[in-house]
Structures are given as C-alpha cells and as structure tokens.
Amino acid sequence: MKAILFADLVTLKKSPKQYLLSIGIMCAIFTATALFDDEMDAEQIVGFFQGSITGMSTAMSSFFAFFQLFGMDEQAGWQSVRLSLPIARRDIVVSRYMILAAMLVVMLAGSLLLATALTTVITQVAFGSVTTMPASDILALAIVYFAAFLTYLTIELPLFFRMGLSKARGYFTLPFMACMLFMLKPVQEFAGKVGTQLMGVVGAIGSPWPLILGAAAAALVLYALSGLISLRLYSTREF
C-alpha cells in the first residue's frame, strides 16, 4: 500500500506547473475584473473571489490530479507493470481513492486560503477596508464544495477503473452535461420546489448545519461504496 501511495505522489509531482499557471491566469483575470468594474461592491467581490475562485481552482486541481494519475497509468504502461508485482488490486484501488480524497482536501484548503488572501487585498485596495466572509460561511462553503467534488469522483472513478483513461474519458463530461438539464423549465420548477422545501427544513431546524453535515456524510458513504464498486470492476478487468 505504501509503495503505491508513494508512486502516485511521485506522479502528481511531475507536472504541477500547468496547474499553477492555470490558477494564476484565472486569478489575474478575476483580479482585473474586480479592480476595473466600478459596479461591483465589497460583498459582490467577496462572493466573486471566495466563492468562484475556491470552486474553480479546486475543480481544476482535482481534475488535474485525476487525469495525471490515470493518464500516467496508460502512457507509461504502469497499469500493466504493477500487476506483475506482488501488489493486490485492492491496494491499487484503495490507494487511488485515498490519495484523490486527500488531494481534494489539501487543494480545497489551499484554494480557500488563496481566495481569502486575494479578497483581503482587493477589498483593501478598492474600498479601503478588508471585507471577507465570516468564518462559519467559509467553513460551510468548504464542506459543500467537498461534498460536491467528492460526489463527482464517486461517479467517475468506477468508470475509469473499469475502462481506463482512453475509453472512459468520453464519460468525463456526463455530470456537467447533466447540469444542462437545469436549463429546462420543468427541471427548474422541480429544483425550485426542492429548494423551497430545503429552506423550510432549515427554517424549522434553525440552522443549515445539519443539512450541510448530512450532505458531507452522505458523500463520504457514497465514496466508500464507489470504492467497493471500483474494486469489483477492476478485479475482473483484463489487460
């Protein structure tokens, strides 16, 4: 297990420049937009930076790690070589799930720190005082993003373990395409009703935290179940 984890970490260290460059360009565009848009007030900038940058940079970094690991498996023939070693397929699956979840946490924390630092600087320069989200809102945002991206990995990982990168990458955009359903009026109406009911539950409870923590717990359970499915699929895969 330790050897597989180490190999995955070495793979992720090989090309971080592309990821960092992409994040840097995105932050530069966001900063220029905030500084030169006179119509944006402090609260809008806070939401723009701490919400958008955190979500986009975490998504980009998660996709980077995901494709870097599975891409290296095929490009270097590592997926065939490691099966000739005294390594159980179970260890390969568990290692990949562990490292992607850990990377998600690390990248989410880093994205939040980056977004908060930029928000602090921009609001100070533009308005003469620092404005940021309350700590409780930042924590809630982090948990929601964590649950969302973990759910995405839950859906995609079994496909990639079963088919490999070259075949499964065609399914990479399916979750995003599913989001396009919200452009349909019936789906929008249904989502509105669900949102209203959730707000009613939050009002009855008096706090959104039970729902937020419940969503995170559900995402973790589904991620574990996804690991079991991936193990079963990967165990029967032929190379």
Rank of each mutant, 00 (worst) to 15 (best):
M1C: 04
A3F: 03
I4S: 04
L5N: 07
L5V: 00
L9W: 10
T11R: 07
L12Q: 05
K13N: 08
K14G: 06
K17W: 13
Q18I: 14
Q18V: 13
Y19D: 07
S22H: 10
I25R: 05
C27Q: 13
F30D: 08
F30Q: 09
F30A: 13
F30H: 11
T31I: 08
L35P: 08
F36A: 14
D37W: 03
D37R: 10
D41T: 13
A42Y: 11
E43T: 14
I45N: 15
V46T: 15
G51Q: 11
S52E: 11
T54G: 15
M56N: 09
A59Q: 07
A59N: 09
A59T: 10
S62A: 14
A65H: 02
F66D: 03
F66G: 04
F66C: 06
Q68E: 14
Q75P: 01
A88M: 06
R90L: 10
R90T: 03
R90N: 01
I92S: 02
I99Y: 00
L100Y: 00
M103T: 12
L104T: 11
L108V: 12
T116K: 10
L118C: 05
L118P: 00
V121D: 00
I122H: 12
T123K: 08
V125F: 12
A126Q: 14
S129G: 05
V130T: 14
T132N: 13
T132L: 12
M133L: 13
A135T: 13
V144Q: 04
F146Q: 06
A147T: 09
A147L: 07
L150C: 03
L150Q: 05
T151N: 08
L153R: 00
F161C: 00
R162G: 00
M163R: 09
M163W: 09
G164V: 09
L165M: 08
K167W: 01
K167P: 01
Y171P: 07
F172N: 08
F172T: 02
F172S: 09
T173Y: 14
M177I: 15
A178V: 15
L181F: 11
F182S: 12
V187W: 11
Q188L: 14
F190I: 07
G192H: 09
K193I: 10
G195N: 10
G195V: 07
L198N: 07
M199N: 11
I205Q: 08
G206A: 12
W209V: 06
I212A: 04
G214F: 02
A217I: 07
V221G: 04
I229R: 03
L231S: 02
L233G: 01
S235W: 00
T236W: 01
R237L: 14
E238P: 03
